[in-house]
Each structure stands twice: as C-alpha cells, then as structure tokens.
C-alpha cells in the first residue's frame, strides 16, 4: 500500500530522519511511536506528500507520492490532525462536505450527488442534530467528531492519524479509536497512526514502528516492540511491561525514576546543536 525506502530528511543541517524504511500492507493498522523530536511528525508529512524527502522515496500504490496530483492524492489518503478544527462560521454539514472537495469539479458539482453519503456519515457519528450548527458553537469532542466525519467523507483508502487523541479525555480517546477501527473493518481501510500513548498503540495497532532520533529502532508486532529494554533505551524509563489480561497485548506500566541518565544526555546533545537549531 505505502512504502518508505531509505527516507532521509534534515532541517537546517540537523538530520531528522535517517534511512527510514518500511512498508505498510493494505488493511493494516500501522502505529508510529517514539519520544518527542524523534521525527514522527516529519515522517507523516513525507508519507502524506506535504514535504518531499531529501533522499529516498515514498511510494503509494507503487507510484511515488510526489507524482500524484494533489486532488488525486486527497481522494486516496486523508489525514486526521492533532489540532481541533478552528472555530469557523461554517456549519457542520458544510465542513463535512468539504471532504468531498477532491471529487468535485470547479463548480462544486460531483457526478452522483453525495447527499446520501453525507447523511449516512452524519448519522453514524451522531452529528445529525448538530448539522446546521456552526463550528464556533461546538465543544472540543464534537469538533473532533466533525473532523472524523470530514475525513470519512473523503472516502480514502489510507487514513493517517497525527496524534489524534492528544487533547481528548480517555473516554473520547477510546471512542475515537473504536470508531476508526469499525470504519477500518467495514471499508478495508488502511491506517497509519502516530500515537503518543503506548497502551493505545498496543491495543489498536497490528504493527508498530519505534522511532528514535530519526532512526528506526524496530518494526514488528507490539509484543516485540514494547519490551522493557527497548523502552528503556528510547524513553529512558524503567517500565514494567505486562500482558493485557483480556486482549493479550503488552501494556506499559510506569514507575518513577530512571529518566535522569537519558535526559541528562539529551540536554548535553541539545546544548551542542541548539545554536544552529532554532525551531
């Protein structure tokens, strides 16, 4: 479905991604995890074609991502962002309809009106009652649902998630991930998710990629990636990894201490590069 081949990227002389390579299979949920500044967001930008890699190549459906026209790409992949939708004066229905933009001609018409599709999506996400409300008058959780409805309207084959649960409480996190999971099963969707929460990643992803300082530390099933050794290496913590009593996937329990060595080392690193870095 999507392959990254020895992808490299740097910003103002600092290497952010170094020879990152992997392939994601159709229908899979692929998680990308790693500490702050490990290059997760940059990787997502390269995968979605927003930025071009310095070296290497990203291929989507066998064709380099940069060879796609913007609209064609938008018909096949969608991105659910971390930030909530801004408080604009558009109604929920209008925003969800914006997801159809890549299918519309310049007059805003589309072959085979999507009216039924939009209604079905609104209904599915309990947004029908809010359809005529403007975004300014929605709560954070409602806006997140609108954002999900919008990417659903895009009908992509590949959905990318950029830390979508960051600003949500745990109830909403589970709700969001469940809805995506359901959508995945119904439509055969492929998902690439950048996640901060390792336990969520273990629960919802088939495979994980652990990224550290721009390099791949490991790719594999959660049980092979979320090991105490790897986590200690990458995050500098001393975690306890147990098995989920029902799901059987690894779950990470934290305990205080253990970070001193790693963070002290990182600060030293940062001190060295800080001058050239600036943002």
């Amino acid at each position: 479905m999507i392959d990254a081949d020895k992808v490299r990227m740097s910003f103002s002389g600092r290497r952010v991604l170094d020879d990152v390579g992997f392939s994601v299979r159709g229908g899979e949920c692929f998680g990308i995890i790693g500490p702050n500044g490990s290059g997760k967001s940059t990787l997502l930008k390269l995968l979605s074609g927003v930025d071009d890699p310095e070296g290497g190549e990203v291929r989507f459906g066998g064709k380099p991502v940069r060879d796609y026209a913007r609209k064609e790409l938008a018909r096949r992949m969608a991105m659910l962002e971390q930030e909530a939708l801004p408080a604009v004066g558009f109604t929920v229905r209008e925003v969800v309809e914006m997801g159809r933009y890549p299918y519309q001609n310049w007059l805003g018409d589309e072959e085979g009106e999507p009216g039924g599709l939009l209604d079905a999506i609104l209904d599915k996400l309990d947004l029908t009652g809010l359809a005529e409300r403007t975004l300014e008058h929605l709560s954070g959780g409602e806006k997140q649902r609108v954002a999900l409805a919008k990417v659903m309207a895009q009908e992509p084959e590949l959905l990318m998630l950029d830390e979508p649960t960051t600003y949500l409480d745990i109830g909403r996190q589970i709700q969001l991930m469940d809805r995506i999971q359901e959508w995945r099963r119904e439509a055969g969707l492929t998902v690439i998710a950048v996640l901060h929460d390792l336990n969520l990643a273990a629960l919802y992803c088939d495979r994980l990629l652990l990224l550290h300082r721009g390099r791949v530390v490991g790719i594999g099933e959660p049980r092979d990636i979320l090991t105490p050794e790897k986590l200690a290496d990458v995050y500098g913590i001393a975690p306890i990894v147990t098995e989920h009593p029902i799901r059987g996937v690894p779950q990470v329990m934290l305990q205080p201490g253990g970070w001193e060595k790693r963070l002290a080392g990182e600060d030293r690193d940062n001190g060295r590069v800080d001058v050239s870095r600036r943002g």
Binding site: V50, R70, E72, A74, A78, M98, Y101, P102
Partner: peptide, 8 residues
C-alpha cells in the same frame, strides 16, 4: 495543512 490534505 487541512486544505492541502483535502487536495488544494
């Protein structure tokens, strides 16, 4: 960014 992801 949203606009870019929607094909603009």
């Amino acid at each position: 960014r949203q606009a870019a992801h929607l094909g603009v």
